[in-house]
Amino acid sequence: MLEMTWRRFRRHRPALIGVGVIVLFVLLAVFAPIVSPYDPEQNNLDIRLQPPTLEHLMGTDELGRDLFTRILYGSRISLAIGVLSMMLAVTVGTLIGAAAGFHGGGIDAVLMRMTDVFLAFPRLFVLILVTTLLRQLNLPWLPAGSFAPIIFVIGLLSWMSVARLVRAAYLSIREKEYVEAARGVGAGDARIMFRHILPNTASPIIVAGTLGVAASILTESGLSYLGFGVQLPTPTWGNMLRSAQAQMTYAPWTAVFPGLMIFSAVIAINYIGDGLRDALDPQREVR
């Protein structure tokens, strides 16, 4: 199964390139201190707003910090937020969808109405308010200075589509014969839900999760751009764009490069998701 999936995935060239791009980004993020000799938060007012040169590949920002270095350190946070908030969203979505689809009836009705409520929230506005709230509350397990609140908020406002997907899968699978067989040999609800049905819903969850990482990266950068996400001086791709705005007319590189990073990361992940969708769905014809 795994081998076949890989064989099909390999034929999707954009997805392969996407994997290459993401691997490169992750390596650069992990080895940032080795890749770049500069300190991401060290000001150097003598070299403010210098255009890209060999010494400063992407130029310097308004405080003379090396832009490339800040982008590398920023990618640690942007990528981590993307992955972690998606994992939270997929976990919550899977649990809610599984409970609703497996049990049906009253539980299903309540959980799905709750999903409707979350879907009717004006998402961006609520994201802004909840991040503001969490920053002010400064909970011990979600310290305001860290980026944990952002992960938490994005995760808790992004699980709805996964929940609907998983519910639909559970609704159809729970009637299958092998589920009945499992029940026949005395398997309990929890065992059937997670050991027998869950593996068979993996494909759509994996695809939704992959695309979810891209969406989370976009959401984080958007929030940080508006000033409600990760706060300075910690760099992320989004808040770098925010600070670039003031001088972008005469120092356009400060705005171009961070956005280019978001764009390439998101498009790479979207292509990977596309490739996975083709590879995991045996019914889909592969060109």
Partner: peptide, 23 residues
């Protein structure tokens, strides 16, 4: 279509301003 769905639109806005307004 793929690019259009992946581009951060606030960045697109900034680039549009850089190109068509300030350059």
């Amino acid at each position: 279509v793929f690019a259009g769905q992946s581009i951060p639109i606030f960045w697109l806005g900034l680039v549009l301003i850089i190109v068509f307004h300030s350059t």
